[in-house]
Protein backbone atom coordinates (compact mmCIF):
# COMPACT_ATOMS: atom_id res chain seq x y z
CA UNK A 1 0.00 0.00 0.00
CA UNK A 2 1.45 3.35 -1.00
CA UNK A 3 1.30 6.43 1.24
CA UNK A 4 -1.45 7.67 -1.07
CA UNK A 5 -3.53 4.59 -0.34
CA UNK A 6 -2.84 4.99 3.36
CA UNK A 7 -3.98 8.57 2.95
CA UNK A 8 -7.14 7.26 1.31
CA UNK A 9 -7.85 5.28 4.46
CA UNK A 10 -7.47 8.40 6.52
CA UNK A 11 -10.76 8.02 8.36
CA UNK A 12 -9.98 4.49 9.43
CA UNK A 13 -6.46 5.51 10.42
CA UNK A 14 -7.79 8.37 12.55
CA UNK A 15 -10.15 6.14 14.46
CA UNK A 16 -7.39 3.56 14.98
CA UNK A 17 -5.07 6.25 16.34
CA UNK A 18 -7.81 7.54 18.62
CA UNK A 19 -8.37 4.04 19.93
CA UNK A 20 -4.69 3.59 20.64
CA UNK A 21 -4.53 6.90 22.53
CA UNK A 22 -8.03 7.98 23.51
CA UNK A 23 -8.79 11.50 24.71
CA UNK A 24 -9.91 12.10 28.25
CA UNK A 25 -11.06 15.07 30.28
CA UNK A 26 -7.66 16.17 31.46
CA UNK A 27 -5.99 15.49 28.16
CA UNK A 28 -8.39 16.28 25.31
CA UNK A 29 -5.85 15.60 22.58
CA UNK A 30 -6.06 12.10 21.15
CA UNK A 31 -3.99 9.80 18.97
CA UNK A 32 -5.18 11.51 15.79
CA UNK A 33 -2.54 14.16 16.53
CA UNK A 34 -0.05 11.58 15.28
CA UNK A 35 -1.72 11.34 11.87
CA UNK A 36 0.66 13.63 9.98
CA UNK A 37 3.69 11.90 11.47
CA UNK A 38 2.41 8.42 10.64
CA UNK A 39 1.68 9.45 7.05
CA UNK A 40 5.06 11.14 6.76
CA UNK A 41 6.86 8.01 7.99
CA UNK A 42 4.94 5.87 5.53
CA UNK A 43 6.08 8.21 2.76
CA UNK A 44 9.70 8.42 3.90
CA UNK A 45 10.46 4.74 4.40
CA UNK A 46 9.20 1.95 2.20
CA UNK A 47 9.80 -0.53 5.02
CA UNK A 48 7.77 1.48 7.55
CA UNK A 49 5.14 2.24 4.92
CA UNK A 50 4.54 -1.40 4.14
CA UNK A 51 4.38 -2.37 7.83
CA UNK A 52 1.86 0.36 8.53
CA UNK A 53 -0.16 -0.58 5.49
CA UNK A 54 -0.20 -4.22 6.57
CA UNK A 55 -1.47 -3.26 10.01
CA UNK A 56 -4.22 -1.13 8.55
CA UNK A 57 -5.26 -3.77 6.04
CA UNK A 58 -5.44 -6.36 8.79
CA UNK A 59 -7.60 -4.04 10.88
CA UNK A 60 -9.82 -3.35 7.92
CA UNK A 61 -10.19 -7.03 7.12
CA UNK A 62 -10.96 -7.89 10.72
CA UNK A 63 -13.54 -5.09 10.91
CA UNK A 64 -15.20 -6.18 7.66
CA UNK A 65 -15.55 -9.72 8.98
CA UNK A 66 -17.38 -8.58 12.10
CA UNK A 67 -19.63 -5.65 12.68
CA UNK A 68 -21.47 -4.19 9.71
CA UNK A 69 -20.81 -0.70 11.14
CA UNK A 70 -17.09 -1.13 10.52
CA UNK A 71 -14.28 -0.12 12.84
CA UNK A 72 -15.25 3.49 13.42
CA UNK A 73 -18.83 2.64 14.17
CA UNK A 74 -17.99 -0.02 16.77
CA UNK A 75 -17.92 0.52 20.49
CA UNK A 76 -14.60 1.26 22.20
CA UNK A 77 -14.59 -2.22 23.72
CA UNK A 78 -15.17 -3.81 20.32
CA UNK A 79 -12.46 -1.66 18.73
CA UNK A 80 -9.95 -2.58 21.41
CA UNK A 81 -10.81 -6.27 21.09
CA UNK A 82 -10.34 -6.09 17.36
CA UNK A 83 -6.99 -4.33 17.70
CA UNK A 84 -5.84 -6.93 20.21
CA UNK A 85 -6.64 -9.66 17.70
CA UNK A 86 -4.60 -7.86 15.04
CA UNK A 87 -1.79 -7.31 17.56
CA UNK A 88 -1.64 -11.10 17.99
CA UNK A 89 -2.00 -11.98 14.31
CA UNK A 90 0.34 -9.28 12.91
CA UNK A 91 2.75 -8.48 15.76
CA UNK A 92 5.47 -6.71 13.74
CA UNK A 93 3.08 -4.52 11.77
CA UNK A 94 1.07 -3.65 14.86
CA UNK A 95 4.22 -2.87 16.83
CA UNK A 96 5.26 -0.42 14.10
CA UNK A 97 1.82 1.19 14.18
CA UNK A 98 1.97 1.72 17.95
CA UNK A 99 5.58 2.95 17.88
CA UNK A 100 4.97 5.52 15.16
CA UNK A 101 1.74 6.61 16.83
CA UNK A 102 3.54 7.21 20.12
CA UNK A 103 6.41 8.94 18.31
CA UNK A 104 4.04 11.27 16.49
CA UNK A 105 1.80 11.92 19.46
CA UNK A 106 4.53 12.58 21.99
CA UNK A 107 6.49 14.86 19.71
CA UNK A 108 3.47 16.99 18.83
CA UNK A 109 3.61 20.52 20.29
CA UNK A 110 0.07 20.23 21.67
CA UNK A 111 1.03 17.11 23.63
CA UNK A 112 4.30 18.59 24.84
CA UNK A 113 2.44 21.65 26.13
CA UNK A 114 -0.17 19.49 27.84
CA UNK A 115 2.66 17.60 29.60
CA UNK A 116 3.75 20.90 31.12
CA UNK A 117 6.85 21.32 28.96
CA UNK A 118 7.63 24.15 26.61
CA UNK A 119 7.08 22.99 23.02
CA UNK A 120 9.74 23.71 20.43
CA UNK A 121 13.48 23.18 20.20
CA UNK A 122 15.43 22.61 23.44
CA UNK A 123 18.16 24.95 22.16
CA UNK A 124 18.97 27.69 22.63
CA UNK A 125 16.64 28.05 25.60
CA UNK A 126 17.72 25.00 27.66
CA UNK A 127 16.13 24.52 31.07
CA UNK A 128 16.56 26.40 34.28
CA UNK A 129 17.57 24.37 37.31
CA UNK A 130 16.89 26.10 40.60
CA UNK A 131 20.13 26.36 42.55
CA UNK A 132 20.15 24.08 45.58
CA UNK A 133 22.87 23.19 48.02
CA UNK A 134 24.57 19.86 47.50
CA UNK A 135 23.59 17.41 50.20
CA UNK A 136 26.22 17.00 52.86
CA UNK A 137 28.83 14.58 51.56
CA UNK A 138 30.49 14.27 54.97
CA UNK A 139 29.03 10.86 55.76
CA UNK A 140 30.29 9.39 52.49
CA UNK A 141 33.68 11.07 52.72
CA UNK A 142 34.09 9.96 56.33
CA UNK A 143 34.16 6.32 55.25
CA UNK A 144 37.73 6.96 54.18
CA UNK A 145 39.23 5.28 51.14
CA UNK A 146 36.97 2.52 49.84
CA UNK A 147 39.28 1.61 46.97
CA UNK A 148 41.94 -1.06 47.14
CA UNK A 149 45.44 0.29 46.87
CA UNK A 150 47.31 -1.62 44.22
Amino acid sequence: MTPERLEAKRDLLISVLDTLIPADEEFPESGALALDHVLAIAGASAEAGSLLARALEAIEAAAAGGEARGFAGSSVTQREELLRRVERSHPAAFEALVRHTYDGFYSHPATIARLGLEPGPVQPRGHRIEPAALPDLARVAARGPIFRRA
Partner: peptide
Amino acid sequence: PIASANGGSVGDRVPWGREHRRAYGERFD
Protein backbone atom coordinates in the same frame (compact mmCIF):
# COMPACT_ATOMS: atom_id res chain seq x y z
CA PRO B 1 8.18 12.29 26.29
CA ILE B 2 8.62 9.66 23.56
CA ALA B 3 11.03 7.59 25.62
CA SER B 4 8.51 7.58 28.48
CA ALA B 5 5.90 6.08 26.16
CA ASN B 6 8.24 3.46 24.72
CA GLY B 7 9.77 2.42 28.04
CA GLY B 8 13.24 3.93 27.57
CA SER B 9 16.09 1.56 28.37
CA VAL B 10 13.78 -0.82 30.23
CA GLY B 11 11.71 -1.21 27.08
CA ASP B 12 8.30 -1.73 28.73
CA ARG B 13 6.04 0.29 26.49
CA VAL B 14 3.06 2.03 28.08
CA PRO B 15 -0.05 0.02 27.07
CA TRP B 16 -2.29 1.48 24.37
CA GLY B 17 -6.04 1.85 24.72
CA ARG B 18 -8.10 3.12 27.61
CA GLU B 19 -5.31 2.33 30.07
CA HIS B 20 -2.86 4.50 28.21
CA ARG B 21 -3.54 7.89 29.77
CA ARG B 22 -3.37 6.70 33.34
CA ALA B 23 -0.29 4.56 32.78
CA TYR B 24 1.55 7.32 30.92
CA GLY B 25 0.63 9.93 33.51
CA GLU B 26 1.98 7.75 36.29
CA ARG B 27 5.27 7.40 34.50
CA PHE B 28 6.07 10.67 32.77
CA ASP B 29 8.54 12.77 34.74
